[in-house]
Design a binder for these strands. Structure first.
Lengths: 288, 288
DNA sequence: ATCCATTAATGCAAAATACGCATTAATAAA
DNA sequence: TTTATTAATGCGTATTTTGCATTAATGGAT
C-alpha cells in the first residue's frame, strides 16, 4: 500500500477524469489507470464505477476518499513534526542547575533557548551535588550545570562562565570591605559553609581560600542550599562564602564582599547523546 | 512512502536488531537495511542511531514509532470498514413505504435485514404517491415500496406481495360479511377513499371494484392517509376500502370485510444503482 | 441510424526499483 | 590480539512501474 497511490486516488476522486488527473499528477493515463487498479486489488474492493465514458465513486470509494484525506494530512503533520525533532527544533531537555545561578545565568540561557527554538520544552530541576552525574548517566537529566569539574568517562564538560566568591555578611556586620578582613578577625567568626564533598572542586576552592588566610574556619552549619545559607546569615547566625551570583537574588540586609577567588560554572552532558536538541542548545550556549 | 516500509520500521523498532527483524518479516537483512535507509532518505531524518553493533531509536524515530502505530491501525480499521461497505454489510438505505404495510410487511422485511446485516442503517420514510419516483430518481430514497406499477425508464420494479382489498366499516354497521353487500345497499353509503391519482394502479383497482357493482360511489372525503381514513370510519363518518394489511394495525371497533380484489405491493429501485447494499437487500427481499 | 470524438483499458518493451547472495567493515567480548 | 557478531554494500537477477501506441466502448452530433 503506497501512499502515493492513495494520493493518485484522491486526485482522481476530485477530477473524476483519468486524462486530466494523470496530467495533474504528472504521470500518463495508463499508469494512473493501473495504479487505481492495483489499489482496488490490494483493498479487495471497487473504488470507482466506470465505463469507457464516466468515472464515479462507489460508496466505499466515497468513504475512503473522506477518511484517507484525513489520514494523509495527519501523516503529513506527523512527518513535519518528526523533521523538527530531527533538527532539534522540538522536543524536551531536562536541565539541572545550581540554585546560585537561577537569578543570573539561567535566565540568560533560557532566554536564548526560547528565542532560537520557541517550540522546545525545557524542564529545569535542581539535583543534589552527589546525584548530578548519576542522573545524567541514567537519562534523568540531559544537561547538568555545575560548579564542579568531573573526569567521568562518557561525560563531557565545558566551562561557560566564572564568578567571584564573596563573603556574605549582614549589613550591620563589622566587615564592610575586603580590606577589613584579616586572619585574626576571620578566625573569630562563625561560618556557614557548603557540605565538604570529596572531589568537589567548588569545595576545594573554599578550602584554598581559608588556607590563604591560614586557619581552619569555625563552621557553625553545613548546607548545600544557598537560599538557606542566605536566610541564616541575614538572621545574624553567622557569615558565609558564596558565589557572587547570589547578589542577583533578593538579598536585602546583606553585604557581598568580593574575594579574589573565582569559581567556574561548567555545563556537562553525555558524550554519546546524539539528540539534536542537545547539540542545538550546546551550540547556543557556547556561541559567545 | 510505502506502508510496508513503515511496518518494517515498526518491527525493527521493537526488536532493535536487523537479523532477527529481517527473519520475522520474511526478508533478508540486506533488504531490511535498505528499506530503512530509503525510509530515512524519504523523510529526511534519521530513525535509528546505529553502529555495526547496536541499533537504537533516535528521538524522532521514537516519536514516529508511537504515531505510526496509531495511524496504521486507524488505516487498517478504515480499510476493513470500506470492505464491509463494498460487500453491502455497512452503509445506509433509505426506504419509502406506504403506511398500510407498516404493521405487516415492513416489520418482516426489516427483521430480515437486521438479522442478515446488523451493521446496516435503514432509514424509513413515507412519501406522497406523486413524489415517489421523483425522490427515487433524485437519490432522496433508495427503495420505494408502492402499490403502483410504473413504467419509468431507469426504474425497475418487482412485485413482492399482494393482499386483498377490504371494506372497512364500524363494528355496529349493518354490513357484517361479504354477502351483505349489494349494489343497492352500497350505493346508499358515504365513502372515504384515497385521492384518485392519474395513472395510479391502486386507484384503478378501486375504480374497477365499484364498476363491478356498477355504480359511482358517493365520496365523502379523499385522503391518502390510511390512519386518517380509519379514524374517520371508526367515528362513523363513512366506510372505506383499504388493503387488508391494515387489519394488523390497532383497529378496535372496526370490521374488515374482504373483497375479491387484490392489490399488489411492488418494490422499486434505480436500475443503475450499483450500491452493494441495495443488491443485498433486494436479494433478501426476493429470497422467498 | 450512422459516424465521430472522447476516454478508460491493455499489450509491449524499457526503465526503475527491490531483492537475495556474498562480502566487507566495524566493534564488543574473550 | 583474536574472534564472533552484525549492519552496510556491490552486484546480478527478479519484479514492478512506466510510457507509448493501440483498442474498445460510449455518448453526442449530423
Amino acid at each position: 500500500m503506497d501512499l502515493q497511490r492513495i494520493k493518485y486516488f484522491l486526485a482522481l476522486s476530485e477530477q473524476l477524469h483519468y486524462w486530466k488527473t494523470a496530467e495533474k499528477v504528472n504521470i500518463t493515463q495508463s499508469a494512473l489507470s493501473r495504479q487505481i487498479q492495483s489499489l482496488e486489488n490490494e483493498l479487495g474492493l471497487q473504488l470507482f464505477e466506470r465505463n469507457k465514458r464516466n468515472v464515479k465513486l462507489t460508496p466505499a470509494g466515497k468513504f475512503l476518499k473522506e477518511k484517507w484525506e484525513v489520514e494523509l494530512s495527519e501523516i503529513e503533520y506527523i512527518h513535519q513534526f518528526a523533521r523538527q525533532l530531527h533538527l532539534g527544533e522540538r522536543g524536551t531537555v531536562t536541565i539541572a542547575h545550581p540554585d546560585s545561578i537561577s537569578a543570573s545565568l539561567m535566565p540568560d540561557i533560557l532566554a536564548k533557548i526560547t528565542a532560537a527554538f520557541p517550540q522546545l520544552q525545557v524542564k529545569l530541576v535542581q539535583v543534589l551535588y552527589e546525584n548530578q552525574l548519576e542522573f545524567l548517566k541514567n537519562y534523568k537529566i540531559d544537561l547538568a550545570i555545575t560548579r564542579d569539574m568531573n573526569s567521568e568517562p562518557g561525560i563531557r564538560s565545558k566551562k561557560i562562565y566564572s564568578d567571584h566568591l564573596a563573603l556574605v555578611v549582614p549589613l550591620e556586620h563589622a566587615f564592610k570591605k575586603f580590606e577589613d578582613l584579616s586572619t585574626k578577625r576571620l578566625k573569630a567568626q562563625k561560618f556557614i559553609l557548603p557540605t565538604k564533598d570529596e572531589g568537589s572542586s567548588y569545595s576545594e576552592i573554599i578550602q584554598a581560600l581559608f588556607k590563604s588566610y591560614d586557619f581552619v574556619p569555625d563552621v557553625f552549619l553545613h548546607s548545600e542550599f544557598g537560599s538557606t545559607i542566605i536566610a541564616l546569615v541575614r538572621k545574624g547566625l553567622g557569615i558565609a562564602i558564596l558565589p557572587d551570583s547570589y547578589m542577583h537574588h533578593q538579598s536585602l540586609g546583606l553585604r557581598f564582599i568580593p574575594l579574589p577567588f573565582k569559581t567556574d560554572i561548567l555545563i556537562n552532558w553525555r558524550a554519546d547523546d546524539h539528540n539534536p536538541v542537545l547539540a542545538n542548545i550546546l551550540k547556543l550556549v557556547f556561541e559567545n
